[in-house]
């Protein structure tokens, strides 16, 4: 059994906005084993990006704990955090705004090495940057190019390179391929999977694209308005999803095969606001199975089937389980 690398317990992140408290992440609990990928799926505004940032410590948690390799990171001092950054990295969604336009490829990838003083001489730095560029598939001659001179795919490779520079063990990938064209997207996905295989990396893969998440993840966590809705293995999620939201989400994906149009359970309505949510299941207003209890009582995550967690009052009835 692989050991647990990351453990998140009852993590909460609220933002103060003019209309009240925005519950971006509300009571999220999960663990990831070393070398595995956890996919985090949800629609815009469900708090999936915030979750990644809180786990990394880029945002302070409102409540809850994050343990990395057995150490509690949420209570770490400034120095300890600085050290943790070497092990925990992030790849951003937008390859356009996440790279400083006034720095060359080499400077961007070399910056983390400089910050941590990992290279003693200039030659050593050059060598290490060249090696990273080779790993992520960037040609040597691009070392002195600026990001705006490159296309989206290669910019994203720079972002991957920057994250890899410190040789982390864990990377949060925040929608790393959603800004890319399909043919380029596949190249980046392959790169990330190769890296995982070679280096035993652990990923949190945040995305709204279910086919991508199925392709890359071992486990999947579905979020809705800051709450966990369903968590299970990737195969289970696509074969026997239990939560009504997950069902609706899967039914909504357009399938590139003719005649694939299945019996659709179209979700009606739109996302409600995560600001000062009322008690009760947050999905209840869009849920066709919702009963009175759903509007008054918060559902809790429970293990409905082995290693298959769902947060729904009526999950057994809906799915005909005992």
């Amino acid at each position: 059994m692989a050991k647990t690398l990351l453990e998140v317990k009852h993590l909460k992140k609220y933002f103060k906005v003019s209309a009240g408290l925005l519950h971006a992440v509300d009571d999220v609990t999960f663990t990831i084993e070393e070398g595995k990928t956890l996919g985090v799926v949800g629609e815009s505004g469900c708090g999936k990006s915030t979750l990644g940032r809180v786990v990394l410590g880029l945002l302070d948690a409102t409540d809850g704990e994050v343990y990395f390799d057995g150490k509690e990171t949420t209570k770490a001092t400034k120095e300890e955090r600085h050290e943790l950054r070497k092990d925990m990295q992030i790849i951003f969604q937008d390859p356009f705004s996440s790279l400083n336009p006034r720095m060359t490829v080499k400077e961007i990838i070399g910056e983390p090495l400089k910050i941590y003083g990992l290279c003693k001489t200039k030659e050593e730095l050059d060598e290490r940057v060249a090696k990273i560029m080779e790993t992520v598939g960037l040609a040597d001659r691009l070392a002195f190019s600026y990001p705006h001179e490159l296309d989206g795919g290669r910019r994203q490779r720079i972002g991957v390179g920057r994250a890899l520079a410190l040789e982390p063990r864990f990377i949060v990938c925040d929608e790393p391929v959603s800004a890319l064209d399909v043919s380029i997207q596949a190249q980046i996905l392959n790169l990330m999977m190769d890296l995982q295989e070679q280096r035993g990396l652990t990923y949190i893969f945040v995305t709204h694209d279910l086919s991508v998440v199925k392709h890359i993840s071992d486990d999947i966590l579905v979020m809705y308005l800051g709450c966990m809705v369903e968590k299970c293995s990737s195969d289970d999620l696509f074969d026997k999803q239990l939560h009504p939201y997950t069902k609706g989400l899967l039914a909504a994906i357009p399938i590139p095969t003719i005649g694939a149009k299945k019996e659709r359970v179209m979700l009606t309505g739109e996302l409600s606001s995560p600001i000062e949510p009322k008690p009760g299941c947050r999905f209840a207003v869009r849920c066709r199975y919702a009963k009175d209890k759903c509007f008054t009582e918060n559902p809790v995550m429970e293990e409905v089937l082995p290693n298959h967690f769902v947060s729904c009052h009526y999950v057994r009835e809906i799915n005909g389980l005992d």
Binding site: L56, L58, H82, R85, K86, Q89, I90, F92, Q93, D94, S97, S98, L99, N100, P101, R102, M103, E111, P112, I115, Y116, G159, R162, A165, L166
Partner: peptide, 26 residues
């Protein structure tokens, strides 16, 4: 507000470094 400022924080850059290397030139 740009993402590369957040990216700099993620690779452990100090405030001073962020101001000098990332904010002023841009």
């Amino acid at each position: 507000e740009q993402e590369y400022i957040e990216a700099a924080k993620a690779i452990g850059a100090s405030s001073g470094r962020i101001i000098v290397h990332h904010i002023i030139p841009n």
